[in-house]
Design a protein around this nucleic acid. Sequence first.
DNA 1: TATTAGTCTATCTTTTTTATAGGTTTTATG
DNA 2: CATAAAACCTATAAAAAAGATAGACTAATA
Lengths: 138, 138
Amino acid sequence: MLSKKTQYAFHALVHLAENVDKGPILISEIAQEKNISIKFLENILLELKNAGILGSKKGKGGGYYLMRPPKEIALAKIIRLLDGPIALLPCVSLNYYERCENCRDEAVCGLNEVMGKVRDSALKILENKTLKDILTRS
Amino acid sequence: MLSKKTQYAFHALVHLAENVDKGPILISEIAQEKNISIKFLENILLELKNAGILGSKKGKGGGYYLMRPPKEIALAKIIRLLDGPIALLPCVSLNYYERCENCRDEAVCGLNEVMGKVRDSALKILENKTLKDILTRS
DNA sequence: TATTAGTCTATCTTTTTTATAGGTTTTATG
DNA sequence: CATAAAACCTATAAAAAAGATAGACTAATA
């Protein structure tokens, strides 16, 4: 399961994407709209900003906004940033690989093989679907 | 990511499957072979037994054994038992569903839709692949 | 210069994960 | 029948991660 942090991030990003034309959006607005603790959300948005996904403006009229159009922000990127590996096992992770401590040879491990396929099938979706694809359907 | 508990369970089950013809297998043998803490493994095997996946025999000559042939034990079943939901979000889980607290209507939520697809693609593999499919390739 | 709104860092609480300890029960066997 | 072997059971502890909050700081605007 994705952490609350990542779930909140998705909902916040959706809100930002659905209001791209309205300039910077307040943290407090997102928090209220999406029913998220404002202080917790603050940290999340900051992390997204430091990763280059969001931009921000301080002071009156300030807030957060997307740095790129929604269709260019892949879901996989958000998950990896806030949640870490998408794979079910460290030994099949592309970005957070760790050697398996419980088997002799990953090259002939059937678990490694199957979990690799699960990873691929998830990535096929998560690398190609973007913020644009998760907007609320009218 | 799967918990260590689930990872250990898979490795233990593989060992049992690869030795089906040898009668009951000692916890200590599995622990040593797969490099797992024996006491932790004890709890895991007991849980698998209580779920009807393993059988056991006490006393000398005792140990654990599979209750069904490896090809009848789906990977999804093990994950759900020890790790819980396979889905990335509670609101798309088939077995551990929880209503989304952050969106107004799941029926029109794009995140819900995409994550449902991720779940389906993972389940297509995990429901159909069995212990037999994760044995070490000769 | 007052107000607004994001920034930063630290801390705290709760939950989950991982692991260990130690006694109990069952079974085989000499 | 005594002994040893091995699983069973329950509790607890230690560590890590998740979730949440606090408060002072900085920048921008009017």
